[in-house]
């Protein structure tokens, strides 16, 4: 008996689903499952009983809450696919739109974070889902496999952080600056971001953007906890572009 899968897009860019479609294992996946709903690939549109619901996108409209609750009531497991569904996503930077993770409304059985989720991680997660097992995510932060990591705390955290990107555009792989970004005064969100992306940005000599989301707490509080201990330039202190990236805390009464 093939497991029933449901794939639902809420407010999103469809990047997660497009990543999923281009996975190596996707043809086998289609063969092994019975897709009950997926607006990208299927005509039928009913939310019916299913084993696993993958939900991409954040909740930004009231209407979506009913859809979510409906899906929850008919799904054995609900998995948040991508950073939007798991934490709120880029839309959290908006001042007029809400961007809430689905877990604010329904119980979630697992998340596959990333904007988009790294192919390797997503592939592994889907295989585990097909085997009806729990998703396993890395529990460390990006620093864990960062090739620039330094254990010299003094030099790492004492520098004034005033840049969002490296200014010295040295693309020479041989001669590139191999110091930790923080040591170079560049804001790198690696410490507060979940590992699992194989630190792709850092390997390309660009600082971590935090797209994998936090491991514990929420992104904003982690960012505040982290950046209050380092020397952050005044201009960046009020810059919402850092603190609300990928998620916004709930502070409304």
């Amino acid at each position: 008996m093939k497991p029933n899968f449901l794939i639902e897009s809420l407010t999103s860019c469809s990047g997660c689903i497009s990543t999923m479609i281009s996975l190596d294992i996707f043809p086998q996946f289609l063969d092994k499952v019975n897709l009950v709903r997926c607006s990208f690939m299927r005509d039928e549109n009913n939310i019916s009983e299913n084993d696993i619901a993958l939900i991409e996108g954040c909740v930004s409209e009231e209407k979506q809450i009913d859809i979510l609750k409906n899906i929850r009531s008919k799904s054995k497991r609900v998995i948040a696919l991508g950073t939007c569904a798991a934490f709120g996503g880029m839309l959290a930077l908006s001042t007029v739109k809400e961007a809430e993770p689905i877990s604010n409304y329904i119980e979630v059985d697992g998340i596959i974070p990333g904007c988009p989720p790294p192919s390797k991680l997503l592939g592994n997660c889907i295989i585990r889902l097909l085997e009806n097992k729990e998703i396993i995510l890395p529990e460390k932060n990006v620093c864990a496999d960062c090739e620039f990591r330094t254990d010299n705390i003094e030099s790492k955290f004492m520098k004034r952080i005033n840049k969002l990107m490296p200014r010295e555009y040295n693309l020479d792989i041989e001669n590139k600056d191999k110091r930790c970004f923080l040591e170079r005064g560049i804001l790198c969100l690696g410490p507060i971001t979940r590992d699992g992306c194989e630190s792709k940005c850092i390997k390309l000599n660009l600082p971590c953007d935090g797209c994998m989301g936090p491991i514990k707490n929420d992104f904003t509080s982690n960012a505040i906890n982290f950046l209050s201990t380092v020397n952050l330039a005044k201009g960046l202190r009020k810059y919402k572009g850092i603190f609300y990236r990928y998620s916004k805390p709930k502070t409304k009464r």
Partner: peptide, 27 residues
């Protein structure tokens, strides 16, 4: 749905804009 990316990009530094704009569409 309307995501209001025009609003989302307001008050952002130019250096941040391309990667935010990327999130307009995953295709």
């Amino acid at each position: 749905i309307f995501r209001a990316f025009e609003n989302l990009l307001l008050d952002k530094r130019l250096i941040d804009v391309p990667r935010i704009a990327s999130r307009i569409c995953g295709l």
